[in-house]
Design a protein around this nucleic acid. Structure first.
Lengths: 197, 197
DNA sequence: AGAATATACGGAACACTGTTCCGTTTGGCA
DNA sequence: TGCCAAACGGAACAGTGTTCCGTATATTCT
């Protein structure tokens, strides 16, 4: 931390105290608003919860995606870090892949509307999409490679496609007639079908 | 058709000529607007294309779903009718199921935004959802049953879930990095994995 | 401490879209 | 031809995202 201030180019001008306070307040407000009303809760609602004006939200988080990323960053990081851990933990690579995807699915289905937002082609969610991909694609690719190399699954699939497919299957997971986890399970089972003309 | 007019309760009062004309014009305008800008093109755009006021749209099609259903009804019917045909055409039930799902996927991926609308929990799309389910679930269930009875696929899956899963996988199919057809293929392959602990 | 300045704030205002409503027009009929 | 119910057009309203600027305040300088 200290070495940031001693840098040469830009001394990383510390933000004003009220700004830092508001940012934290906003993160809390957004997190609870997301739980209560989904990730597409109106900006004004979040502002009201936090007791700030809407301008303050846009100043700290220019797009909704930035706010969502900030709120869920910890959990995404945890998911990313679980990949190598699972791979090293003894089972087959394919089992590790399956367990990792379970983690990913658990994360998505418990965040109302997040899967929908992830797949949205709305420009406002582009950076959300990018963040998830940047962080998770390498992890998924590693697991995918390991399982493919072991001959346990087909090898013609990219990590992007798999993540996206799994994310898609999680859309609408709050409908009791639709079990996203089971559908993902079937998809993952299909990965193991290598030659099935 | 003729027997409708000869019915006893309501003589089905024929609509005014301008109303019938406008309805046809609106269907054309909506169809081309959907192709040009997706199924969530603004109402005003459709009205402008058709040369009518927005009120006229709402009078003929109270919700956007009604308009979408009207535009695509023919194609949905064709898909529904293809089910029994495929089942009777000689191959295994599982092959028939796979081909039918191909038809469904082809339909979805060529309608920009339709898959998204189908999965949306927005109340305005409820009747769209209902129509698709009403029409396609029985067909899908028949194919699913036949394949399950033949022991070709797992038997613990409902037609609703399968249709929904396939629909979900078709979301975002216009992204070149994502091949919805391939993902659906993997899902369908997974249906054949009956005991894979 | 008191003044000066950059930073941050609040919320009005604007843009865009869905939806409703009502005064006006018009097709069908006596 | 004259009537009127049906249909029309589009203004008006409502909800939401986004921008902008006058005001307030934390921080720095003297």
């Amino acid at each position: 931390m200290a070495d940031i201030d001693s840098g040469s180019a830009r001394p990383a001008p510390r933000k004003r105290a009220d700004a830092r306070r508001n940012e934290a307040t906003l993160l809390d407000a957004a997190a609870s608003a997301f739980i209560a009303s989904g990730v597409d809760v109106p900006v004004r609602d979040i502002a009201a919860r936090a007791g700030v004006g809407v301008g303050t939200i846009y100043r700290h988080f220019p797009t909704r995606a930035d706010l969502i990323v900030a709120v869920y960053r910890h959990q995404v990081e945890a998911c990313a870090e679980a990949g190598p851990t699972l791979l090293a933990s003894g089972g087959t690579p394919r089992a590790a892949l399956a367990r990792w995807i379970d983690l990913f699915v658990d994360f998505l289905v418990t965040k109302h509307g997040l899967a929908e937002a992830l797949q949205s082609d709305n420009a406002a969610f582009q950076s959300l999409h990018a963040y998830f991909l940047d962080r998770l694609v390498p992890v998924c690719a590693q697991l995918l490679d390991a399982a493919a190399t072991a001959g346990e699954i087909r090898s013609d699939l990219t990590a992007i496609e798999l993540l996206r497919g799994v994310g898609n299957l999680c859309v609408g997971a709050d409908d009791p007639r639709y079990d996203a986890r089971r559908m993902v399970g079937i998809l993952v089972a299909g990965l193991g079908v290598i030659d099935d003309d």
